[in-house]
């Protein structure tokens, strides 16, 4: 049997741990063990302190860049909720425009088809169709302006979502670092997990479902 001093495997250990294992006096061993743990814990708590400050700075930056002077996480959530509401509001505005235009476009199409059947002799109907078409074109132009305006809301909501995304990245990085420090990561590199394979297009989904008789 090899003594600790002669065991070649001990040479790969950090010097402080090797010294601990080579201690012969039980009391000195316990004292050195306590000291080793204390040093490790101090390093962990220092890192935790840095991470906490980084996280707080991320929250402050998020809320400041979202146009707020306060730095609380609840207000960050409020900004995110507002972004979602803006996005929904813009989508509803666009849908309202489509719903507004569709029946009038459909009516105009029917009038034009009827005139095509009646022929060029019906000049009164042709004149009315021209008036209706001009009025509809004016309505379209106004609604196009509203469509463009609603895109600016989408842009604003996108900017706020980007801020939240950056914040989440920072939190993720901090948590991974925390996991590394506390030794809970079991060898898998951060972010290295295999992503579920996605069928990104409808054709790919259809091909996949065809195996099930679809």
């Amino acid at each position: 049997m090899q003594t600790p001093a002669t065991d070649p495997e001990l040479h790969v250990l950090p010097p402080e741990l090797r010294a601990l294992l080579e201690t012969r006096d039980p009391e000195a061993f316990e004292a050195n063990l306590d000291a080793l743990f204390a040093r490790r814990q101090q390093a962990l708590f220092r890192s935790l302190g840095h991470l906490t400050r980084d996280l707080h700075a991320s929250i402050v930056r998020l809320t400041r860049e979202a146009g707020q002077s306060s730095s609380s996480a609840p207000e960050a959530r409020e900004r995110l909720r507002e972004a979602l509401e803006m996005s929904a509001s813009a989508a509803h505005a666009n849908l309202a425009t489509a719903e507004h235009l569709r029946p009038r476009a459909s009516q105009l199409r029917d009038e034009a088809r009827a005139l095509a059947v009646a022929g060029a002799a019906d000049t009164a109907a042709a004149l009315q169709l021209a008036r209706n078409a001009a009025e509809f074109a004016g309505t379209c132009l106004e609604d196009f302006t509203r469509l463009v305006e609603s895109q600016s809301w989408q842009d604003l909501s996108g900017q706020r979502l980007q801020l939240v995304s950056t914040f989440i990245d920072n939190v993720e990085r901090a948590l991974l670092e925390l996991a590394r420090l506390t030794g809970t990561i079991s060898g898998a590199p951060p972010g290295g997990e295999r992503r579920a394979q996605a069928a990104s297009t409808q054709d790919e989904v259809d091909r996949l479902l065809s195996d099930f008789g679809f």
Partner: peptide, 12 residues
């Protein structure tokens, strides 16, 4: 939701 697993789960 468009992962193979989800599509297969829906089919099943």
């Amino acid at each position: 939701e468009n992962t193979r697993e989800q599509i297969i789960a829906a089919a099943q």
